[in-house]
């Protein structure tokens, strides 16, 4: 089970601060979407409205075509895991992990208790431990378990790796992919650790200052970025008609990062001209795209 997310002209203001500024995009059902943006770009604000944790100032969010705000039919389909923990009702922080799981099993129709138990094991947690006494990484793990075992049609992880050590994060990524393959659903991952997770993404949404910078299939996006190195004049000729995101020079050698479609002919000519062409990582592309003031053409 999976559901689509539709964001229409969404604006969210906190007093004088505009966190989300007229955002519109669709997230197709059944895919893993990456949500990227710099600090303060509005990711958490956006996701809070998507999950109906917050009311939009204007515009709306629809889950499977239905408005999500104050609509239990829609909110039932959404699970929002916000950073480490924060998912347990009741008298936090005295709750135990087992209480959190029980609470989730009462409220999540597709909750899988056996899978939750397996994850508790994989993350090396003690179900009797009090959540308030866990480390930040362990609390993140609890959040991840609630998100994965809940099997919600829309599952959102907002920096749910905070404080986790590398082995725990790899368990998270591995389990997320395996469980997604076995039980396809719509997943939204908001992260700053782009290199670690970019392989899991099918599509990527990049927001900047509350606005949509771009949305694309991750492989298409990657194929549009290139690093080109060689004699300065040859590099400049190659880069003509492409957006140049960054440029560095060492003597007569220039290295540029370009953004734009590279046809096979162009690549062949470039190699013949002795230029070295390499792909750039999604993380580098993200850094360059959010660094420039203008949108790439």
């Amino acid at each position: 089970m999976s559901a689509s997310i539709e964001v229409r002209d969404l604006t969210l203001r906190y007093g004088p601060v505009t966190a989300v500024d007229g955002l519109s995009f669709n997230l197709e059902a059944g895919k893993i979407h990456g949500l990227l943006g710099r600090n303060g770009s509005g990711k958490t604000s956006l996701l809070s409205v998507v999950s109906a944790f917050r009311k939009a100032t204007s515009g709306e969010v629809r889950i499977d075509g239905e408005p999500v705000w104050e609509n239990p039919r829609a909110t039932r389909k959404v699970c929002f895991i916000r950073g480490p923990g924060d998912t347990v009702a009741g008298d936090w922080p005295s709750d135990k992990i087992s209480d959190a799981l029980e609470f989730a099993s009462d409220h999540r129709p597709d909750w899988d208790p056996e899978y939750a138990a397996k994850l508790i094991d994989r993350f090396g947690l003690d179900p009797k431990a009090h959540i308030g006494k866990l480390s930040q990484g362990q609390r993140s793990a609890v959040g991840v378990i609630l998100g994965l075992a809940g099997r919600c049609p829309v599952t959102i992880f907002d920096e749910s790796y905070l404080g986790m050590d590398a082995p725990s994060r790899y368990v998270f990524y591995e389990e997320l992919l395996a469980d997604y393959l076995a039980h396809p659903r719509t997943v939204v991952l908001s992260t700053h650790l782009i290199e670690e997770v970019s392989r899991l993404f099918e599509e990527v949404v990049i927001i900047d200052r509350g606005r949509l910078l771009l949305q694309d299939k991750v492989e298409d996006l990657r194929s549009r970025g290139a690093s080109v190195t060689g004699p300065a004049d040859a590099v400049d000729r190659f880069a003509e008609g492409l957006s140049v995101l960054s440029s560095r020079q060492l003597g007569s050698t220039r290295s540029v990062t370009t953004y734009g479609e590279l046809g096979d002919d162009r690549l062949r000519q470039a190699r013949a001209a002795g230029l070295e062409i390499g792909p750039i990582t999604l993380q580098d592309l993200f850094v360059h795209l959010t660094d420039t003031e203008r949108l790439p053409v």
């Binding site: 893993i32 393959l181 392989r199 492989e219």
Partner: peptide, 17 residues
Amino acid sequence: TTQYAEFYRINPATAAK
């Protein structure tokens, strides 16, 4: 594509491509 995705830990759409 599922087997590829599991083995290489990549999105199945990447293998499908």
